[in-house]
Design a protein around this nucleic acid. Structure first.
Lengths: 149, 149
DNA sequence: GTTCTTGCAAAATATTTGCAAGACG
DNA sequence: CGTCTTGCAAATATTTTGCAAGAAC
């Protein structure tokens, strides 16, 4: 659970990192800010393009660390490999704010459908799930209107 | 829609291929049979390991062709990249038999939950989806019992 | 003979690690 | 000083393509 003492700094990147028990180094702060600045999940290579001062291995290691500490979660599917997105929940031990995503096959962007809930799936006896990855594919509103006209 | 004339051979791999308007070559038949023999989706490298006589590029090209002709669909997420699964529907122009999958983080296998339906997601205005990829992650019944004891 | 299919090699992508130098405390 | 972090280079892994030889029709 979240420790309230750790939260009052959360709007700053370094505060977020500390709240997740991650030492806030310069590079890590930049990675968090890049993720904060985006309204959609970003792949490693997208982050590389935005963070020219950091080597990709550094970005990668930051993301792995963030994932362990439940500061980012991972979205698979769509294309261009795995994408990363900041967790917005205040639960620092689990990924509780997962939501569906939409991958546009035209512009190849992944959108968060964060006002939609993940469905409740009744698993067969014996299965034990702790997370869900749901991606819809098709055309986003922008591309759809461009194609029409 | 399906042409009934094309269907009476469908239990044979070559019949399935023809029903999907794919010329049944030796290699393609082998790929179809490998997929038929599996109760779960297979990745390209898993197919490579099963089909030692065919080069991976050949398997890859067969799968791409099958995908275009809606003979396989693609499951993303889990790990070890993309997996392929035979379509079982008789609709040769769309993927209509999609279902959720379960990825076991212990044995790293992907299971079909083909008795479960994909949920109905109410997309926001403007989005237009034609397919859905839903993967649950956790532990499968086998691994779960092994871990317990 | 023309088109289709295949294997091989290699390119293109993506992910991950080793290691030594430097920063931090 | 000892530990943690970083950049660089390189190893892995995965997917995809070019091309020429051979098969199919």
């Amino acid at each position: 659970m979240v420790n309230p003492d750790k939260c009052h700094l959360s709007s700053q990147a370094s505060g977020i990192l500390e709240a997740h028990d991650i030492k806030p180094t310069v590079n890590r702060i930049l990675v968090v800010k890049a993720l904060q600045a985006s309204d959609r999940p970003l792949s490693l290579s997208e982050l590389e393009r935005k963070l020219l001062t950091i080597d990709k291995s550094g970005i990668f290691r930051a993301l792995m660390l963030f994932r362990e500490h439940h500061l980012v979660h991972v979205i698979e599917g769509g294309a261009e490999g795995v994408k990363y997105e900041l967790c917005h929940s205040h639960d620092h031990d689990h990924d509780t704010d997962l939501h569906p995503h939409f991958y546009c096959e035209e512009c190849q962007q992944t959108f968060c459908l964060d006002n939609l809930e993940l469905p409740d799936i009744e698993l067969p006896e014996g299965y034990d799930a702790h997370s869900m990855n749901l991606i819809l594919k098709g055309h986003c509103p922008d591309c759809r209107s461009k194609i029409k006209h």
